[in-house]
């Protein structure tokens, strides 16, 4: 299995380089000019050319690409065109924030999704089933940016003044101003408060899909013989459902994690934008708009790598869970 995993990872490297190359080509073909962000009234064309030269944009495309590829293969992601800050620093600075948001949201979504899915499976075709699946699917169907703004309206702007709630959640950012002056407990509290809205929004969007999946998986398990046996033994129903059935129903669900996590990273783009969360998604959007290709390429490579790893993980888990699945099927 280790050999198989190693082979997959190695095979992914040219793949990811291919992906990054496509992005490079797209950015290179785009009509805009990264230097134009420095345009000012009164500037002469010569000055603009000079700026372009200073940014290293005067070289022909294949040279720019070669330069990038060479340094990339040596593990150097280069410098951001927009700010001159090393790309590695930029990414390392924001990546933990995205991971934090994604991890919390995934955890919450799995807990809620599993709970809802089991409830629905136990009461299949009941009104509760319909209502729950309707509701979770409704949130799943909402554009996340839209839900995010609504959440701010309800829990932040109107929380104190209109509804009279004691806490109004901070609408944006990761920490309050003056965070570094707080004591350790207050810091944790401050971070948690800032995390609530973005994480909750993301959770609401995700839960529907997971609940659906758990429900189907549970339905299949509940029909199996050993569940009937457990019931026949006279075990209480909750024990049958939450212990015996769920344990087996969860196995395929675990593999979902591998698929979800990397997808989430790009799924947080809108959430990060609305909540001004300094994460990968916003970095990518900003960099794309500025045609800051070193950042975009590194980010794409990173995203792509996570997708590959996630898929590999999911495949391996599948293999463990269900030996019938043949490996190497792609």
């Amino acid at each position: 299995m280790l050999v198989y995993a190693a082979r997959r990872v190695l095979a992914a490297v040219p793949l990811l380089l291919g992906v990054a190359t496509i992005v490079f080509v797209v950015l290179a073909l785009a009509p805009g000019d990264p230097a134009s962000m420095y345009l000012r009234p009164g500037m002469s064309p010569e000055t603009l050319d000079q700026i372009r030269r200073n940014m290293g944009l005067d070289a022909p495309l294949h040279v720019q690409y070669g330069r990038w590829l060479l340094s990339f293969l040596q593990g150097d992601f280069g410098q951001s065109l927009a700010s001159g800050i090393p790309v590695k620093d930029r990414i390392l600075e924001v990546l933990p924030n995205t991971l934090l948001l994604a991890a919390v949201a995934i955890l919450l979504a799995f807990v809620a999704g599993i709970f809802l899915g089991v409830m629905q499976a136990v009461r299949q075709h009941s009104p509760l089933d319909s209502v729950l699946s309707g509701t979770s699917l409704f949130f799943y169907s909402m554009p996340s940016f839209w839900l995010a703004i609504m959440m701010v309206l309800v829990f932040s702007v109107n929380a104190g003044t209109v509804w009279g709630w004691p806490v109004s959640l901070p609408p944006s950012g990761m920490v309050s101003d003056g965070y570094d002056l707080l004591g350790p407990m207050a810091r944790v509290r401050d971070r948690l408060l800032h995390l609530v809205l973005p994480a909750l929004t993301l959770t609401l969007v995700l839960t529907g899909g997971i609940a659906r999946y758990v429900r189907n998986s549970m339905l299949e398990v509940i029909r199996q013989d050993y569940i009937r046996t457990a019931r026949a033994k006279g075990l209480p129903e909750w024990q049958v459902v939450w212990k015996h059935a769920l344990r087996n129903a969860l196995i395929p669900v675990v593999t979902l994690l591998g698929v979800y996590f990397p997808l989430l990273l790009s799924g947080t783009v809108f959430i990060e934008y609305v909540f001004a969360w300094p994460g990968m998604g916003r970095l990518m959007v900003d960099s794309i708009l500025l045609e800051d290709y070193p950042v975009v390429l590194a980010g794409t490579f990173l995203f792509g790598g996570m997708v590959v790893l996630g898929n590999l993980l999911a495949d391996l888990l599948y293999g463990v869970v269900d030996p019938r699945i043949r490996r190497g099927d792609g």
Binding site: L15, L16, G18, V308
Partner: peptide, 18 residues
């Protein structure tokens, strides 16, 4: 695999924005 490894929103944004 290549397209699946793409964060689709990145590709979309790059194509449509630029």
């Amino acid at each position: 695999d290549m397209f699946m490894a793409f964060p689709s929103i990145v590709l979309l944004l790059a194509i449509v924005a630029l």
